[in-house]
Nucleic acid binder design. Sequence first.
DNA 1: GTGGTCTAGACCACA
DNA 2: GTGGTCTAGACCACG
Lengths: 131, 131, 131, 131
Amino acid sequence: MIIELDLQSDIPIYTQLMDQIIEGIANGALQPGESLPSVRSLAADIGINLHTVNKAYTLLKQEGFIQVHRKKGVVVVDKNALPSTTEDYLSRVRKQLRPIAAEAICRGLSEEQLNEMIKQLYSDIQQKDRE
Amino acid sequence: MIIELDLQSDIPIYTQLMDQIIEGIANGALQPGESLPSVRSLAADIGINLHTVNKAYTLLKQEGFIQVHRKKGVVVVDKNALPSTTEDYLSRVRKQLRPIAAEAICRGLSEEQLNEMIKQLYSDIQQKDRE
Amino acid sequence: MIIELDLQSDIPIYTQLMDQIIEGIANGALQPGESLPSVRSLAADIGINLHTVNKAYTLLKQEGFIQVHRKKGVVVVDKNALPSTTEDYLSRVRKQLRPIAAEAICRGLSEEQLNEMIKQLYSDIQQKDRE
Amino acid sequence: MIIELDLQSDIPIYTQLMDQIIEGIANGALQPGESLPSVRSLAADIGINLHTVNKAYTLLKQEGFIQVHRKKGVVVVDKNALPSTTEDYLSRVRKQLRPIAAEAICRGLSEEQLNEMIKQLYSDIQQKDRE
DNA sequence: GTGGTCTAGACCACA
DNA sequence: GTGGTCTAGACCACG
């Protein structure tokens, strides 16, 4: 799986890294049980700081996407094992979406267009799954 | 219009302020042509520094939501005057939604559920508009 | 002569007013010896503050474009009476043009294009003279 | 590269700083990809506050002259990457030049003399480029 | 009185 | 160590 980082972006590198890994899990590029590279090797591979990779891994672990095995190292959790649609999670998503929706209303982007966009994203992200 | 800030949040105050004002414009609490309070008075009202308010105003101006009128002070721009659905804007929204969608897929939140959430947000935000 | 002000502009109103009057002198809309409206009436006409008009007039007087007669009020000076191409003036123009030229170079706007633009401005401004 | 500021000037320090940096880019003193000093060190060097430097950098970033790279710090963008001669840009230049041209007409500075001045500025600014 | 500019000092997130 | 954010206090230009 290829990690693409934008060092010019205002999004922190560790966040970008998390997002990419989560997307990898979503589209099946990272299968449940699969091992992620060690902090050290991943950092070297993509040319970033150890701390940065470490921070991403730590947060991913906290959110339940990965687990640290003593032997296998960092492994991907089964999607189905994730606590789905917690109320906590739902309200977090709502908070994330709210300002996006507000701006969309101001700019005349309709509910339908936004939903269409989400539909495209879903199929776009899951696309690689079918390969 | 009431501004609610969470000073503990990891979202910068000026961003929260921007979001609230944009939502105010979206729901009609802030009508086109209406003047916003001066940086000083708003800062005093909500108990933050005037520079923080100023930063929010500056960014909102830059994004076209408000204008600084030399006589009327800070003025709300007409929603319809905003360049709606620029390709730039659409791709920005897509970038914002992508990680949200990816996580949703992992957590088993379906496209339909997300759509429903957006529908609720739209009606929730626009609610005051109907008054 | 019609004065057009942009209250949204970041250029101070008094500067805009000066610019318009100078352009009026340049294109002959304001003839030498002609009287300008009084501070009071001009302010009322264009709906701005007395102080603002006053400041513009004061600066124009300082720069030699207008004179204050005890009887006729504010009158336009003859262009030819202006101290032309002082070294002071030339270096001031150079200072104004320098950053414009620097940015033009960065953005790949050629010397010729810039000169062409000036040519157009000259004919554009003097156009009304022919009417 | 040497930065020269006039703290007595009525031109804001951050604007002067921007102008100097843009000129540095124009004349090749600042090469594409080169890193600018950090806000702190530059502020210390030229004896101004870091927020003032920061404002200049922020605006330069906004106008596309520099980018903030998460590893390299503040980096000069390739001139060729700048969107050259946008209609927006051209009309902005026109607005800047208009009052200059108007005054020039009043003072009897001919089109040719202005053109000559621009020619000199171009060669003056680009001078260092040839070294 | 308002916004714009500048300074100063502080904390935190990031790498 | 770097940029990002926030606060505080001050002066000036503008209207």
